[in-house]
Design a protein around this nucleic acid. Structure first.
Lengths: 201, 201, 201, 201
DNA sequence: AATGAATGAGCTTTCATTCAT
DNA sequence: AATGAATGAAAGCTCATTCAT
């Protein structure tokens, strides 16, 4: 996976080929510094943290930031790309190793919940309708929905569930339940999600 | 309920007596214009719409806006007060007229869903942790959580459900599922909520 | 002195006849309420206190306030009229009873200092060049400068001082030294003024 | 003194080393434009002039203003830094070259008076108790009071004065006498100050 | 390619003054 | 004569985005 952490440009969202065969080493270094800074700040201040703070922490100029990540979504996608891809790959793996397809689905959904709930503000950003978040939104759905679909189909074929829910719908619901569960009001997203899963059966 | 649509002042949140017996007609008219403008803009632009826009659309000055609704939350609460109170009153009524307590709970939750999903941005605002939304948040929880609690208890006593979920948790989950379901991506909040309810049984 | 506490209109500044022979009793009552409220607020918040606060404390409407005291200066003048007049009258009295004219001058100046330093913000307002303070400024100078002049002349005639300072200049200087001496930085206006007086000899 | 006119950051107030060795020429130009605009507006409208007006006159955006001068006091200090420092340096020089310490003190005080009286509103700002002026206030006192103290001590040691006045007190008094003497009412601050100085002897 | 200075629209809030009631 | 609601022009400050260097 040679392009991991590379800047994400819209038309490359579903591509896995490197966008440029050569790249100046300082550019590559700056990109990494930005990703590291963003990852750290997303944790402490959420994904809506001012871009200037990210550039500052990365020790690069604003222009550099914009050159590599034209929109905030590009940066968010790049920061979480690894983990999303790990989630994508976990789908078939879980299906293979779990006792039943529905158990695999459950495990996979909890994986996703754990991912979202540890990223302050990410679940909300995923559902934002602000144009600058479109790329984020698209990327997540494009990668994860097919996996979820596969798991749902398997569960249905095994007669473990009869709900006709769509994968997109389920992912959306799970994402929603993960919003704002890091705040003072301690809501346990897993509990709510488990209700949803129980309801699927 | 003589004070409907009256400006909301903190200490009157749970009172149902009119704060003033007389009020200048132009003031009352302006309050109504503000409520109408706010209601309309909340639908199109969400509850975060700039106060200036609200004042502009209402055709009143900034000062008038602040006189009647010192904080944004005051305005939001006033705009939705009717419907929240209707929801509050519907709880016992549904309990009385439904075949079983769990059916009453379901109906009541759907009522709440219908309310939220027709108000673009309201569900999100309800979960915002920004200080200016505290009053909104508090108002909703204070009014609705006890009703939900009553319905949950009744359903448990009737042995219709065994989940030990808290009313606050359930309301929060339902609220979450109603976020952003008015957007292009057509997600059916009712379907998701029905899964949650099924999961409760 | 029948017009004490009456609203001050510019063309009446130096008149001592009542401006109107009849006045509705409620009007007179409101004027008094305003003067009382203003006097109290001037002490705690300075003479720049928002007019709305004064009206509020007086329990009258804004319009009433503006009817009786068109400018802030009018109100200030009315509030302090008594004390200014007392100061005016003290001049000749001190001259009569003091051992020497210069001693009388000293005592009179200290009287003025005591007056100013106990009125938070008054000394500054006296020197403000904002148009709404003109009346205040004029009133004080018109009433007090002639008295000061008289004392200065007497001291000069008694050969107790040879400085050719003008009364206006001296009053201004004394007023200046009384500005901001109520703040944290504890400056003793009397000490500074005493230097000035020593310098006069 | 290579940093003259450089933006003032709090921790550099008493430093004389340049904060950055290089600076973009446009930035330097903008800083100068801001200082020029501020100096001009301070004269005509006082140091309370709205920041927006300063930015406008300088022909720069609001953000530029805030970048270089985060608080109003920073700007005021920067505008007057030169002259304050000149005053600081004049103290020992005058002491060395004057016939007697008291004469040096007099000359130095007149220097300060000339400075203040040519800056409309500065003397008043110096005594303002509004938080945004604290830095200004502190800067002036920190720099000038020690110089004044030195001169006072010298005069006392030479037996030229016996008043036990504090340097801060004297400076404050002189500053007060310089307030508002640029207005229509032509008050001669030097004459008033000379009385004060005479009183010191 | 990188920098970071500059931009300026945008936000909330205050308050002297006016004027409909 | 009295009321107090309405006005709206300020103000300070923030921050995503652009672009001169």
């Amino acid at each position: 996976m040679p392009d991991q952490d590379a800047p994400v440009h819209p038309h490359h969202l579903s591509s896995s080929t490197p966008e440029r065969l050569t790249q100046r080493s300082d550019a590559r270094r700056n990109i990494q510094k930005l990703l590291d800074a963003a990852a750290a700040l997303f944790v402490t201040s959420g994904v809506e943290v001012p871009v200037r703070e990210i550039a500052l922490k990365a020790g690069v100029g604003m222009g550099t930031m914009y050159r590599h990540f034209p929109t905030r979504a590009d940066l968010i996608v790049a920061v979480y790309r690894h983990q999303v891809e790990a989630c994508v790959e976990a789908g078939p793996a879980l299906l293979a190793e779990s006792s039943t397809p529905f158990v695999a689905l459950q495990s996979w959904i909890y994986l996703f919940v754990d991912f979202l709930t540890t990223k302050h503000g990410l679940a909300a950003a995923l559902q934002s309708d602000r144009p600058s978040f479109d790329a984020l939104h698209n990327y997540f759905l494009e990668r994860l929905v097919p996996v979820c679909e596969q798991l749902l189909d398997a569960a249905r074929q095994a007669d473990e569930m009869h709900s006709d829910i769509q994968a997109l719908e389920l992912m959306w619901g799970v994402g929603s339940l993960c919003i704002n569960t890091t705040k003072e009001l301690q809501i346990d997203a897993r509990r709510l999600v488990s209700l949803l899963l129980t309801g699927l059966r």
